[in-house]
């Protein structure tokens, strides 16, 4: 579903991403781990065509994102690192806008309410201004957007940073459910525990290189931390 072929990004002389080859299949959750500045956000941005690749290709459902920017965007949903919405609008209004942009047509309030129930937004909150929302609530709106889009792939950039343990647990369950329905998920995260719990595979990045890819069912929590730190130290 998501495929990188020799995907590269350089800024001047600095290489943010060395040629990356990666494939995330439908129903799979791939977690990108790595220190600050490792190139995780760069990878995700390349899939979104937010930045221009210096080399290689990013494919979504077999189509190059640089060639088909609009078509490929119909297939993916994205949750940014800083979930920010229009503060002066209500959660429902925000959802309505983005869902309409995503689908090219209005879905109707009833349908959108279903999604909001599904992500478990506290009842009544949808008609309050977003400026009064907690981070978790904003996150839920964005997940509802992804669901409303019925995207085939999900790109998540550190979605659980700043969430309390319960909220991030709920979040994981939601993502798990989407993956269960066949969505391919690419998630950048610093949370080793959640990566092990939720991911089907994890990739460890350092200085723009994908150093190692592991299947999560082949090791325990302690192993992952040890392997990760080994990569960071040499």
């Amino acid at each position: 579903m998501l495929q990188a072929i020799g995907l590269t990004k350089t800024y001047g002389t600095q290489t943010a991403l060395h040629p990356l080859d990666l494939e995330v299949k439908p129903g799979e959750i791939f977690c990108l781990l790595g220190a600050n500045g490792a190139g995780k956000t760069t990878t995700i941005n390349l899939f979104l065509n937010f930045i221009e690749p210096s080399g290689g290709r990013a494919l979504i459902n077999g189509r190059d994102v640089a060639e088909y920017p609009l078509e490929t965007k119909k297939e993916i949903a994205y949750i940014p690192e800083q979930v920010s919405l229009y503060r002066n609008l209500t959660g429902m209004e925000n959802l309505e806008y983005f869902a309409t942009l995503a689908n090219g047509r209005e879905l109707g309030r009833a349908k959108l309410m279903e999604y909001l129930r599904e992500v478990d937004l506290p009842a009544g909150a949808e008609d309050r201004k977003v400026s009064g929302y907690s981070k978790g609530m904003r996150q839920k709106i964005v997940i509802a957007m992804a669901m409303a889009k019925q995207a085939k792939a999900l790109l998540l950039d550190e979605p659980t940073s700043g969430l309390d343990p319960k909220a991030s647990n709920e979040f994981s369950r939601l993502i798990g459910r989407l993956a269960g329905q066949g969505t391919a998920v690419l998630m950048a995260t610093h949370d080793l525990f959640r990566a092990k719990e939720d991911g089907s595979r994890v990739g460890i990045m350092r200085q723009g290189k994908l150093r190692q890819v592991l299947n999560t069912d082949e090791f325990g929590h302690a192993d992952l931390e040890r392997i990760y730190l080994e990569h960071m130290h040499d």
Partner: peptide, 9 residues
């Protein structure tokens, strides 16, 4: 970013 992750230019 959220808007541009949708199919709009």
């Amino acid at each position: 970013l959220l808007a541009l992750s949708q199919p709009v230019t």
